[in-house]
Design a protein around this nucleic acid. Structure first.
Lengths: 230, 230
DNA sequence: CAGCATCCGCTTTGATACTG
DNA sequence: CAGTATCAAAGCGGATGCTG
């Protein structure tokens, strides 16, 4: 990117991360830690391959990431954020939070990768009952499943299914996301096509505000099946 | 900007504010509140006038700012951030802070406007002695002077000179900025060409860490003239 | 003068094809 | 797997001109 040439920290930051795709590449590396070129390309639907290669070079020069050549048995290049690059994480979280209201129904045909849920979910889910046994929730949406697990008052995410989840959410990703974050009440999400197995209380345990939109009268709670599911 | 078309809050945020110049326009409106077109153009050296007009239209459409047509006596258009636009402030502060280390000596020939100091200074200066009488510091650098004043444990900035400052800093903007934020110790800044009038203690009163880089032995404190200056 | 719109050359981006 | 090469389209920067 052409420099703004302004003596201003914000302008200097944008000189480095203001290019198209750059912050989304940082997103991928924040979520996936060590990425191969093809992992990145797969997590960035729409990017042209030459542009990805160019950005990776520029970001390496700028000190945002490093490129590790793995030795012959593995024989692949791994891209990883430097500490300086990882310092962008709080900014990405805030920006993502700022942009969340723009995820409307109109975005339903947008590309989606399950791992994109990781940062926003870890950012605004909590464990409101850390003294209870750990809670495990499996999400089945998008290109792969994802598991949420409460640890030390927080919610950690990882890719892949859970072996003994307390609850399972299955459905289109906008429903799963809105239901988890509390934008949609569970009953509304179920009415819209979400499948939920487990005790509904588990959901309110990890939402920051259990009833964020009491615009209409609060929907009546439905009993789920408590206990572990296989 | 062409949409990333990804179901991700960050990608949606970048769809709106990821265009070149957009966040710098937000910076201007955060600092100056109500701006005329020419104020904006002056605060954004390097922008092409047609591009500014286009961005303002797009940002109005996106709900970031409003355009007020002032009645005939004033006869000018005022641009102002909406609350939604103002929600970007913490993000800009973080990004500006992240970019601050990039403001090196190499940036000395970059364009500069005094009001750009406003956000970073208010962001990381504090009043470490709020029980003392208010402190007033005048900066003379860049295109106009700026006044710092302690209020309720914080430091507020405004453009223009102070009538009875406790201290005055005169010199090139990188020196004034580094000296205030503590990147440079006062003695170093003075040695580099900064003029400082007032008690050196006043500086450590508003810095978050009074001695941030004791790599070399701490420079000996020089006595200044305490008390008010005219 | 404030607030643009138009034109033109250059740079960046996007899409696709191809390679060690 | 990890890119490079090529080319068309879009975006940007700079100059200039127009309108109240």
């Amino acid at each position: 990117m052409r420099s703004y040439q302004q003596y201003c920290g914000l302008a200097k930051a944008l000189d480095v991360v203001g290019d198209r795709w750059t912050l989304l590449i940082v997103r991928e590396l924040l979520i996936q830690d060590a990425c191969r070129y093809t992992d990145l390309r797969d997590g960035l639907p729409g990017i042209a391959t030459n542009l990805l290669a160019r950005r990776l070079r520029e970001m390496e020069t700028a000190g945002l990431l490093t490129r590790e050549e793995a030795p012959p048995p593995i024989a692949t290049t791994l891209f990883r954020l430097t500490p300086r690059g990882r310092e962008l994480k709080p900014i990405l979280l805030l920006l993502g939070h700022w942009g969340a209201p723009l995820l409307s129904k109109l975005s339903r045909q947008d590309a989606f990768r399950t791992h994109w849920l990781s940062l926003p979910l870890e950012h605004h889910l909590v464990d409101r009952a850390p003294s209870l046994p750990p809670l495990i929730i499996e999400l089945r949406t998008g290109d792969q499943s994802m598991t949420l697990e409460t640890v030390a008052g927080k919610v950690k995410t990882r890719l892949g299914p859970a072996s003994h989840p307390d609850a399972v959410l299955v459905g289109p990703h906008p429903l799963v996301f809105d239901c988890l974050t509390g934008k949609l009440e569970l009953a509304q999400a179920v009415a819209a096509g979400l499948q939920y197995k487990g005790d509904p209380q588990f959901l309110s345990r990890i939402r920051k505000e259990p009833h964020p939109q009491p615009r209409t009268k609060p929907p009546s709670r439905r009993k789920g099946q408590p206990g572990r599911l296989s």
